[in-house]
Nucleic acid binder design. Structure first.
Lengths: 107, 107
DNA sequence: CCTATATATAAGCATATTCTTATATTGTTG
DNA sequence: CAACAATATAAGAATATGCTTATATATAGG
């Protein structure tokens, strides 16, 4: 991997919202609507962030009906696992989503 | 470490010139003038890049006479070593500098 | 001191990034 | 098919980034 590609990967990682998304996807796959709920950001903003992560091959998508689930990818980055481990735990956010009955919008 | 700090760290890593500088410093400590020679960029541009790396605590500086040497730091980032290992080898650039008699400007 | 050398900082411009709002696309369902 | 729901894309504005040129600061040596 050359410097250009490595820089592009880190551009995708150089935003706190996208890091939160990765930390959330570490817990479990989520659809855009769930991310919108958790992050309390507009839907287009979230879509644009996941697109950048997808372009950087840090996440992959899987369409399921009218929903699109995102999950962690990044197999081609051997350093990524070590980094993901340092992300703050976001399980509380997922719990909150479930507590509010908003997990499983995408069903 | 929170998301802000982690994003800031990755902003520093999100530039191909700064990644090259880290790859070079992996080989050996270098002063600004040597980096200018290798990178073939203006001195202010290089200074500004190393400043960003320093602010992100990815490198540290050590003044020696009129020269300032930079070296790798980043102890506080547990994921950094794994990443540095994936950087393309730059030993050839150092060799070239020496071959041209320009290594040791800073002595 | 005075000058030269090495490095840092400042200001300004071009481009990139990240939102917002508006609209398009895709899939579901009656 | 029509109407709705989920997501994506586009255009535009505000801010950030990375260069340039010009200038400031710091150290060495006569």
């Amino acid at each position: 991997m050359n410097f250009y590609q490595l820089a592009d990967c880190h551009k995708a990682l150089a935003d706190k919202t996208r890091l939160r998304i990765l930390a959330l996807l570490k817990e479990e796959d989520l659809c855009v609507g769930e991310l919108v709920e958790i992050l309390k950001m507009s839907q287009p903003a979230v879509s644009q962030h996941v697109r950048k992560l997808k372009n950087a091959k840090l996440v992959k998508e899987r369409r399921q009906g009218q929903w699109v689930y995102y999950s962690l990818d990044g197999k081609e980055y051997p350093f990524l696992d070590a980094f993901l481990q340092t992300l703050p735990d976001q399980s509380g956010e997922i719990e909150r989503l479930k507590a509010e009955g908003k997990k499983g919008i995408c069903n």
